[in-house]
Write a protein that binds this DNA or RNA. Structure first.
Length: 278
DNA sequence: ATCAGCACCTGTTGGC
DNA sequence: TGCCAACAGGTGCTGA
């Protein structure tokens, strides 16, 4: 499932392939892919792609006219450039004036295309990027303060810090030695600093490996990522912790599988320490 | 305001 | 071996 490192890898792959190209028309193979909060897809026919960038987990294309398209891949979305044959699960296609194409294929139909004229930051409403230099330990600590949800749930909420999903939330908390169930507001300044450093470290390493291919993630060139081999806790229930050999446990927080080491991540959560390891 | 819980989806997995 | 219910999960929405 694409999170920040996967989307970053996709964007880096897309830039040299589609920047500068002109869209002749848009085909909606599955019309509900178009986010109804945005504009009609016909509006970008004739547009030239000026720039592609990442905003949280969104792939954002800016057109020469100044309007934008934001694509969210959700769980299984893929963007493939210049597909030679029709791809299974195709939801929309941008036909370029030069005869090429950009195909969005998405088995589970969760991904969306949104077209809009305004400022992308205001349109997609994502919080600060983990790599934004304006975010420091004090700033993160201020965001944490007063919140009662589990820290893992906070990390998944895109309105605060953007781009982190289930895999990297688990991995960063393991690196920081913080239990996923710990109440957000209970993290002290030192833990906030460790968490921010852990987030940046794990996201950087994952980008270096071109992301994690856990489900069916592939980059713009159709290649898999390599970071899944280095995951410390995600998907490793019952396997030995890479640091202390204790068995990795799995709990459910906010309906999502959550993996942690009961020894390395001791910092107490809300009094109940007896979460089931299903 | 904040948060928990469900709906959206379908390919894959696990249990019988 | 084969069938089918349960599961996976990011986000938007609803209701408490």
């Amino acid at each position: 499932m694409p999170e920040l490192p996967e989307v970053e890898t996709i964007v880096r792959g897309l830039r040299p392939l589609i920047e500068g190209r002109r869209i002749a028309r848009v085909e909606l193979a599955w019309p509900r892919v178009l986010d109804p909060r945005g504009q009609a897809s016909e509006g970008i026919a004739g547009e030239q792609i000026a720039e592609v960038r990442r905003l949280g987990k969104f792939v954002v294309a800016r057109f020469a006219s100044g309007s934008h398209a934001a694509i969210h891949l959700r769980m299984t979305g893929r963007l493939i450039v210049d597909a030679k044959t029709p791809l299974p699960h195709t939801r929309f296609v941008w036909r370029f004036a030069d005869g090429g194409n950009l195909v969005f294929a998405d088995a589970r139909k969760f991904g969306r295309l949104r077209i809009f004229a305004g400022d992308p930051r205001e349109e997609v409403q994502v919080g600060i990027d983990p790599f934004d230099k304006r975010l420091d330990a004090d700033g993160l600590h201020a965001l944490l303060r007063g919140r009662r949800s589990a820290i893992k749930v906070f990390l998944l909420d895109q309105r605060f810090v953007s781009g982190i999903g289930n895999i990297y939330a688990c991995e960063a908390l393991w690196r920081a030695g913080i239990r996923p169930s710990k109440r957000t507001g209970r993290l002290n300044k030192r833990e906030a600093r460790k968490l921010l450093a852990a987030l940046r470290k794990v996201l950087t390493k994952a980008i270096d490996k071109r992301g994690s291919s856990v489900d069916d993630y592939v980059d713009a060139g159709g290649k898999q990522g390599g970071f899944q081999k280095q995951l410390a806790v995600y998907g490793r229930r019952g396997l030995p912790c890479r640091r202390c050999k204790a068995r990795i446990r799995r709990i459910v927080l906010a309906q999502r599988g959550t993996f942690f080491c009961p020894v390395c991540q001791r910092s107490s959560g809300p009094a109940n320490r007896s979460n089931r390891t299903t």
